[in-house]
């Protein structure tokens, strides 16, 4: 594509915008040199003159840069989607919190995800869902002298699928102990009750 009308440099005067064309020190029009370089028709002067060669070099470097940038797929920074979605979810559920202490709270979905992960890490088990409820505070805070800074206990309901052949009775005992331990150690909240529903069994051979 020609950048400027072709023709002898001497015939080229002001460009369509009215500004005079700034010639190279050797008297050539830089735009014309670009056109010649693009068309592969550089004359002897343009191939040897340092000013023209610099102009050709400029064109080559810009062409390379533009080509590389144009070839790059447009991508947002890697964590933009994650940031926005995390913020959207947080804004949609601003009150879905467990109370850890006065002025300290924990996202209920985050706590449930942590407990599900712990079940998933147990041999022969996969967590399907986990629901956490917290006892409501008394209307009159600590009327009986109990420590108001202690988190109120949780009730955890977890549904699991167990590997075929796993002793389901022992599964419930293991999950119950894990939930109680994880609640107190990882979340910092006592677990008062754990309901476990084994909703399915799976065969490891099916996974292969």
């Amino acid at each position: 594509m020609a950048l400027n009308p072709t023709g002898p440099a001497s015939a080229r005067t002001p460009d369509p915008g009215g500004a005079p064309v700034q010639m190279l020190a050797c008297g050539r029009d830089a735009a014309l040199v670009w056109d010649h370089a693009e068309a592969g028709v550089l004359d002897e002067h343009e191939r040897t003159c340092p000013h023209c060669r610099s102009t050709v070099s400029d064109r080559d470097s810009l062409g390379g840069l533009v080509g590389r940038m144009a070839a790059q797929p447009l991508r947002p920074p890697p964590n933009v989607l994650e940031q926005v979605m995390g913020a959207v979810v947080a804004d949609l559920r601003p009150h879905d919190l467990l109370v850890l202490a006065p002025g300290a709270s924990l996202s209920r979905p985050a706590a449930a995800a942590a407990l599900r992960h712990i079940v998933d890490s147990m041999d022969g088990l996969r967590a399907r869902s986990c629901r956490i409820e917290q006892e409501r505070p008394a209307p009159d805070p600590a009327p009986d002298g109990t420590d108001a800074t202690i988190a109120l206990p949780l009730r955890v309901t977890v549904t699991v699928a167990a590997r075929f052949g796993v002793d389901l009775a022992s599964v419930t005992a293991r999950v119950r102990q894990m939930m109680i331990s994880a609640g107190e150690r990882a979340l910092g909240v006592p677990v008062a009750r754990v309901d476990i529903h084994v909703v399915d069994v799976w065969d490891e051979r099916e996974d292969r």
């Binding site: 850890l100 002025g103 300290a104 709270s105 924990l106 996202s107 985050a110 942590a114 992960h117």
Partner: peptide, 13 residues
Amino acid sequence: ATVQVTIADIELP
């Protein structure tokens, strides 16, 4: 300062 802290997420391994 009165500080309210919310743990919004727990990163899992």
